[in-house]
Design a protein around this nucleic acid. Structure first.
Length: 962
RNA sequence: GCGGGAGUCGCCCAGCCUGGCCAAAGGCGCAGGGCUUAGGACCCUGUCUUUUAGGAGUUCGUGGGUUCAAAUCCCACCUCCCGCACCA
């Protein structure tokens, strides 16, 4: 049968929407507030986004069926810079981007024209994403929808920011960023040509003094100051004499430009040649030693200040350059100078195990380096640097720092030089040149007056840790990562100068950064409903209003009057907030662990009382396409709406859920989705045939299958409670099939015609369990099964209302294992059976069996001990004849599940002869079309030509096939 | 470098926390059979090696160890993936 998925999808989506099934207000029932990270509408959603939202929807639907009043709302995050960047590119007629809109996203041309305006982009994809969510059947309360640039939301963010500032959690400082000097804007990966992230490093500038003029050397290793022997300058380079704030420096022109962006006032006085300084001496800041300036070609003007200090003992470049000087190879050295420098020797000042006193010398010699322009010097430098950094100890000639590890002393030394006013900081790109999309070359800029969320605040961190400790984290494996992130977090910029968003309330030059305005918005879903219903005017909202709704502060009547609503309305909003808060679950992809999810907790603990702290975080992995990462360049991104049109909502939902557990990457591929489609279709067909008949007297197999159904229900519920959706789905869709097969085989061989009622019960329960996962198909089948209520409105079948029957489990297990054994024998012997004879075990064996079982359950598995106790017992002393029997029984028992063992202990021992005679005969007749004879081992009249009977064991009767 | 995680029977993916239900679930693929005019779908059987009696052997990245018993616990090693900030 061909199923038109879209017809079914639409049919039930319409019904849910007509019934307002997903609109949730406060009432007397227990609530669950389930939220998920809202989307950033700069592109349509693809299957990967669908995973997080689908998991959230399944969670919501499950809890709804469990009887909770579940709120699942959605908003749209307009705030941020990428959309702004896109709008600029549209305005500039960027062919690549526009082509992408056309072919990849299928945006109509007239719409693209409007995209020069950023809000239009957001609006367009907002609609697109929302439609996709509806088409996926997400049970969202759309009355609460908002965007982060709505006036009411902006008031809310202002309240949040003022509140954090009052608590001293927002502080001011400066911060380095990648910067485009032309756009006057910070740049990050998506703003640059080739999508490179500007990466920068901090050089320490140490200032040597030359008659009042500063000779600044830039270094990554300030600790090596103690080993300085000379200074290198490039005689080929034209330097500049510049005024830096109040000092006069000599530096390369490139350096002068860099310094301008680092909050320095720069004035160029004149050009000077590097060669002018060769042979002069400058005073070292730490000991006033006179340090000679020597020429070196390896010094580059675009690196640091264009001047470096020389530490020949520990820097291979310096060692080699010094050799070049002393040997007279370097022509810019006068003969006088040449004489003077012959006594310059490397000063060893770091001791490292495995390295000599002068490691630079050793490595230069080892690598066979011959001059300072040898590229091998880079490797040599790296090797020594990392070894010394992690293992090096500062030597005695380093004064107060002697004995310390480099990795520890580095910062102390930096501070010390800074204190004696001989140091400065130079930030420099390590992956330059980085070009902005506008074409300009980027620099590092120190942004001053930047606003920070002070995530380094100890009390704040502690509180967040406390919250995490009490929270459920699914899956729990991710918990250490949260703790780690929390510890590592420090001040974080929370304001930007461009993009969409809310102005920082006390500093209108700045906009609230988009990861800062998206941390407590779950609370806003309560308010947005009233704004959307026009019961309150977003423009009127005040801090007092939010203080009342969230904290119950001050007098409701007074506040209500001020914002022109009734006191009752205001109190209603407060009541609703108190009802829905705290957030019971927050879902998101794992990429948000180190940022949003952690900030979400931090901001909640800062702004809300403990009873309103989040209760649970659920994190999921991403989705792969046919085993590969989704990416634009691979062209393997499938927009969600396109996929829904192609496959139907439910097959997509199930495919992304069943392919992996929460944290694993799920794989989406054509085979998987077809498998799911077929599975659903065959369930649909099966259910079409079943009628809801009266269930008559229960036969053993009926009791068994219903017990298994009960098992299924409790297993699935358990998985659902742990958000192990893959596992739950497996139980529902596949695991039960083999039980059902056995049941059908049993009833078929008994030629029963009265099982429709039982099957109806089984499928009804399975469909209900399937309903959160495949809501459309479940409703459709549920209707076919003759129900008038919606499946999604029915109670979750935690229990199927059947008494669990352990005896029937024993019976069916016995029958199955005999059939298995017969099949095994037939397979090995390849005979076609004419007659099958079964021998059941003697009474004393049964007695021994239960004694051994008792022992195992009590933890006694030592054969010797067990045998002794059996021999001591009159009823079982016969085992003396066959001690091997005990070993076999013990293995039988150990190879069974603990449940089964307990089951055997709990119920009366089943009468094997009786069961085999009454139930097995029909199966054997059905499967092999032969007669079955049953004897007891002790039966003296038995037919036993091959002497098989004596091998019979309890639950393992002997078999003779002829 | 720091931090987190993973390596399972052709592939994907469970199992590991709480050792014995484990030659190890399920899906996909593959082979055979059934159904069908045919194909698809569906159903059955098989899919580490070996075995003419329901058995035996060797497997869970590698090497050790603990234990009566290890995919599971401990130690070491190898390989791979992800995050590391002002960006959603």
């Amino acid at each position: 049968m061909e199923i038109d998925w879209s017809v079914i999808d639409k049919k039930w989506q319409k019904k849910w929407s007509e019934n307002n099934d997903h609109e949730t207000d406060y009432n007397d029932k227990e609530k669950k507030f389930i939220t998920v990270a809202y989307p950033y509408p700069n592109s349509p959603q693809h299957i990967g986004h669908g995973r997080t939202y689908t998991i959230t929807d399944v969670h919501s639907r499950y809890l709804r069926m469990k009887g909770f009043n579940v709120l699942f709302p959605m908003g749209f995050h307009y705030t941020g810079t990428p959309i702004l960047g896109m709008a600029k590119r549209v305005e500039a007629n960027d062919a690549e981007l526009i082509e992408g809109f056309k072919t990849l996203y299928k945006v109509p041309e007239d719409k693209i024209k409007e995209f020069a305006e950023p809000v239009k982009i957001a609006d367009y994809f907002h609609d697109e994403i929302k439609s996709g969510m509806i088409e996926m059947g997400y049970s969202i309360d759309w009355r609460r929808e908002f965007t982060t640039i709505d006036p009411a939301y902006q008031k809310f963010i202002e309240w949040q920011f003022r509140n954090l500032k009052e608590k001293n959690l927002i502080v001011q400082g400066s911060h380095p960023v990648g910067w485009c000097p032309k756009d006057q804007n910070p740049v990050s990966q998506h703003d640059t040509l080739g999508d490179v992230e500007p990466d920068f490093t901090e050089y320490i500038i140490i200032k040597f003094d030359l008659n009042g003029v500063k000779i600044p050397v830039a270094t990554l290793r300030p600790e090596t100051l103690f080993g300085v022997t000379n200074i290198w300058i490039n005689p080929q380079v034209t330097y500049q004499k510049i005024k830096v704030n109040d000092e006069i420096w000599i530096a390369s022109p490139e350096c002068a430009r860099k310094l301008e962006f680092l909050e320095k006032k720069i004035e160029v006085i004149e050009d000077v040649s590097g060669s002018d300084f060769v042979g002069q001496s400058a005073k070292a800041p730490h000991n006033d030693d006179s340090i000679v300036i020597l020429p070196a070609s390896f010094v580059k003007s675009d690196n640091g200040t264009g001047i470096v200090m020389s530490v020949p003992a520990h820097a291979p470049f310096d060692y080699q350059a010094l050799l070049d000087c002393k040997s007279g190879k370097n022509k810019s050295i006068t003969s006088d100078l040449l004489k003077n420098i012959q006594n310059i020797e490397p000063i060893s000042m770091i001791k490292t195990e495995g390295l000599g006193d002068i490691p630079a010398k050793d490595i230069v010699e080892r690598m066979g380096i011959s001059d300072q322009d040898d590229p091998k010097l880079e490797d040599a430098t790296k090797e020594i640097y990392s070894k010394e950094f992690y293992e090096g100890i500062l030597a005695d000639n380093t004064k107060q720092f002697a004995g310390k590890k480099i990795s520890e002393a580095k910062d102390e030394i930096k501070e010390w030089i800074t204190e004696i006013e001989s140091a400065d900081i130079l930030l420099e790109l390590t992956n330059s040149p980085v070009k902005c999309r506008c074409g300009a070359e980027c620099v590092v800029k120190l942004l001053s007056n930047q606003w920070f969320l002070d995530y380094s605040n100890k009390d704040w961190k502690d509180k967040a840790h406390t919250c995490f400790e009490k929270m459920n984290i699914f899956p729990n494996e991710i918990r250490p990562e949260f703790d780690q992130v929390l510890d590592w977090l420090r001040e974080r910029a929370c304001a930007r100068q461009h993009g969409l968003g809310t102005k920082v309330p006390w500093d209108k030059e700045w906009l609230v950064e988009s990861l800062a305005d998206s941390v407590i918005y779950m609370a806003f879903y309560i308010i947005s409903k009233y704004v959307n219903k026009k019961e309150i005017d977003g423009n009127n909202l005040t801090d007092e209003f939010f203080d009342y709704v969230f904290y119950g502060k001050n007098d409701s009547e007074e506040i209500a009057n001020k914002i022109n609503i009734t006191k009752e309305k205001l109190e209603e909003i407060r009541t609703e907030f108190l009802y829905f808060y705290p957030v019971d679950a927050r879902h998101s992809g794992r990429d948000l662990v180190p940022n949003h999810l952690t900030f979400f907790v931090l901001n909640h603990v800062a702004l809300f009382p403990e009873e309103n702290w989040p209760q649970e975080i659920v994190v999921n992995g991403s989705v792969l396409m046919g085993g590969k990462k989704m990416s634009k360049s691979m062209g393997n991104i499938i927009p969600l709406r396109e996929a829904v049109r192609k496959y139907g909502a439910d097959p997509i939902r199930l495919t992304i859920l069943i392919s992996a557990e929460l944290l694993q990457d799920a794989d989406f591929n054509a085979e998987a989705i077809n498998g799911i489609k077929n599975k659903l279709e065959s369930m649909y067909e099966d259910c079409n045939k079943i009628k809801a008949e009266e269930i008559s007297e229960l036969e053993p197999e009926d009791k068994w299958i219903l017990s298994m159904l009960q098992n299924l229900a409790s297993n699935v519920s358990e998985s659902m409670d742990k958000i192990r959706l893959r596992e739950a789905l497996h139980h529902i869709l596949y695991d039960f099939d083999s039980e059902l097969q056995w049941y059908l085989k049993r009833t078929k061989s008994k030629q029963r015609t009265n099982i429709s009622g039982i099957l109806h019960k089984i499928f009804s329960n399975r469909i209900l369990m399937l309903s959160p996962f495949a809501p459309h198909m479940a409703e459709e089948i549920w209707e076919k099964l003759g129900n008038t209520e919606l499946a999604s409105k029915s109670a979750w079948p935690s229990s199927v209302g059947i008494e669990f029957d352990p005896t029937s489990i024993q019976t069916e297990t016995l029958l199955k294992s005999i059939i298995d054994d017969i099949n095994n024998i037939l397979k090995v012997t390849k005979i076609s059976p004419k007659k099958i004879t079964i021998y059941t075990a003697d009474k004393w064996k049964s007695k021994a069996y239960s004694l051994i079982l008792r022992n195992v359950l009590d933890g006694e598995t030592n054969i010797g001990t067990i045998i002794k106790s059996l021999i001591a017992n009159k009823e079982t002393e016969e085992i003396k004849k066959d001690p091997d029997f005990v070993k076999k029984i013990l293995n039988d028992i150990l190879s069974e599940s603990i449940e089964l063992r307990k089951g055997k202990m709990d119920v009366e021992q089943i009468d094997e002869s009786q069961i085999i005679s009454s139930e097995l005969a029909s199966l054997v007749k059905n499967d092999y079309n032969v007669e079955l004879n049953v004897f007891s081992e002790s039966d003296s009249e038995k037919y036993d030509p091959k002497n098989k009977a004596k091998t019979a064991r309890p639950f393992k009767p002997a078999i003779l096939i002829e």
